[in-house]
Design a protein around this nucleic acid. Sequence first.
DNA 1: TATCAGTGTTTCCCAGATCGAAACGGCAGC
DNA 2: GCTGCCGTTTCGATCTGGGAAACACTGATA
Lengths: 248, 248
Amino acid sequence: MSTQTEGEAIEATVRSFSVLHVLVDAPRPVGVTEIASRTDVTKSTAYKHVNTLVSLGYAEKVESRYRPSIRLLDCARRLEWNNELIRTVRDPVDELAEMANEVAGLVVERDGVAIDVYCADQYYSGTFPAYNTRYLHCSAAGKAILAELPERRIDSILETCPALTDHTITDRDELSMELNRIRERGFSLDRQEQFPDVNSVAVSLRTDDFVSAVYVSGQADELSGKRFEENIPGLLLSASRMLTSALE
Amino acid sequence: MSTQTEGEAIEATVRSFSVLHVLVDAPRPVGVTEIASRTDVTKSTAYKHVNTLVSLGYAEKVESRYRPSIRLLDCARRLEWNNELIRTVRDPVDELAEMANEVAGLVVERDGVAIDVYCADQYYSGTFPAYNTRYLHCSAAGKAILAELPERRIDSILETCPALTDHTITDRDELSMELNRIRERGFSLDRQEQFPDVNSVAVSLRTDDFVSAVYVSGQADELSGKRFEENIPGLLLSASRMLTSALE
DNA sequence: TATCAGTGTTTCCCAGATCGAAACGGCAGC
DNA sequence: GCTGCCGTTTCGATCTGGGAAACACTGATA
């Protein structure tokens, strides 16, 4: 979980959020001991933090274990509705997903990873994990974004390039060539570089304040051939034009 | 924002979350002074807390003002995908929305308000605020849930019954009669009690661990007559049976 | 049934993090 | 240039949050 410890952050808050992250990422309720070991504090400290989260309504206690509360969703959804970016992007991305008959989304770069601003998952096939951290070096959307960034930022982001599959590009030079290809043809392809059996296509958006990208993801056997390399990229390019003008 | 200050919560954490709430609910970036006044701390304290949120990635600084970051969404979405309840409920609620051709959702009660576990808003007309706090006394889903709770809890929840529209029921006795009607016929109607020109229908779900309700909401002129009082309730009743068995 | 190893919970005290007051610097508008 | 308001920074006293260790409970084991 990337966290720049710039200046002096309030430590108690940082710890509380670490605890929250543990709860959110755990598939089932977790106990105090596990929280403590994952966040590198003592049991008693973990106990106080998780109980603070409970009293705030962000966690729930169930049989002496703890899990995140959907109150967090409530908070996020209010943000969603107040956020102009998301509201602008929703309909065009939904449309894109429908035309492509696949999962489609729009991501922005934050702290060296790609975050979904919105993801239309009506056509989600359930075979790959959605809403995971998307590294920039091994996803179509990530590479499309990298291709827009200055070399210096690319280097600092790419200090680590974990290989998530056999196809992940981990060599810096090879990645540079890939980024050049992307810049030339205007779109980016991910051939099972992030998840096995999942391909993606993406196009970056250049707007004034930030870099973003639209993508389409699907199972590798369905998203292949001409559809993968021409039709879907075509859909994305026209979607990106529409989105770029909508975001002005 | 309801917050039980039970036991001893870590104050720094509580303050940080207050700041986050201010950011989330503000329609535009807010300054330190405003944050301070809304959270009842000094400027310097507010400054440190909001900067901690920035360093954690949950807030962004834009021209010396602060706004929440979509990183919060990322967190919430991971929760969404890890949460069994939401995963179970998604498809049936989507189906319900499609059959009703209206917004449909499922809420649970937390701290005396109804929170959306999932809301299928493909048919959202944009005329009423979505994802707002739903008071239990003036929404179809809220009343359906109230009708399931013991009298004591009802009383404590209903200490305040703000009138959101002219049609809001604010009298405790009248509400008791309304709850009896709901228990008899098995579903709950909201005739513009929460938002002007918005009607809703809801049915409660009885599962072992918690009380929840499914609802359908739409514009009052469209959601009316036999459709409002018979067809949609019929859809909801069958959806509730399906959901109840799916949640076992 | 007794033992034990593993939980979650509570208590306690002190180091040091957090808070607030006040000073600083920058900006906008009379 | 003056004034008022804002975000930022400094700094010291206070009191909170952290950790060690004891406690309570649970379930497994023999």
